[in-house]
Amino acid sequence: MLLTLDILTTAAILFIVSIGLLAIFGVLKIINFAHGAWLTVGAYCAVVTAKLGLNPWAALPLAFAVGAALGGLAEHFIIRPLYRRPLDAILATWGLGIVVGQLVTLAFGRDVQLTPNLYAGTVEILGVDYSAYRLVAFGIALAIGTLFALIIERTRLGLSARAVIMNETLARSLGIDTGRVRLVVFMIGAGFAGLAGVLLTPLTSVDPNMGVSWLIGAFMLVMVADASYLALAAACLVFGAAQVLISTFVSPILGSIAIAVLAALVLRISPKGFSRA
């Protein structure tokens, strides 16, 4: 029972962390190495919210807004000039991550920051005491997934984004302003990453490097998912389960590299990853 809950909530957290990255990867075809910095910025929004004495949940909209705004700037000044050099764009986002991390350090110091708990306590569910927040996080992951699905399936932006994902040249020839789609998607992706940063605060320390430890797992999940949010959900479940099972029955150390190694092998054997289904 505990195992099932662990798997489901781990998958949910992985999904929350990687959904913003997926949006950007799908449309812009680049892995955003600054993703970790975006998570960090989001978490520091929670710190600021706490310092202002606001309700901790108010950090969510703030983090989304800050993430989106910074994402917009980054897309315009860094990603756009490198449109034709995707590997360079990746490198530039890595550099951006360093810069953002150092700016956060200069502004807040390197110390671990105190953040209020979003939802404390435990809940008894099917005979086990379980962390209430992890269950809340599972619900939030479902909500984010649904919201994402609605944007993709039901809005004009979603339609344009899908067109760009499938065939950018064709989309442009159909009169879609692909530049604008890229900008808006990057902003949304960065916004979601900021959101994820806030949602991580009850689980992890808030410090300038907090994002880095989530990066590689998120990269691999997104590459396996290949621009499909349903495939991402599946990948989070499968690899999250692998991580929990290996950690529980073999060794947490192997468990912590399970996602990266297994995803690499999956991609080697089936280059389209989980998106084929």
């Binding site: 860094i78 000039p81 490198l82 360079d88 490198l91 530039a92 550099g95 951006l96 360093i98 810069v99 991390g101 150092q102 700016l103 200069l106």
Partner: peptide
């Protein structure tokens, strides 16, 4: 500051 300068220079050079 050193890291910040290096990071900024890196982004600028790449672009």
């Amino acid at each position: 500051l050193w890291q910040l300068l290096l990071g900024t220079a890196f982004v600028a050079i790449i672009i």
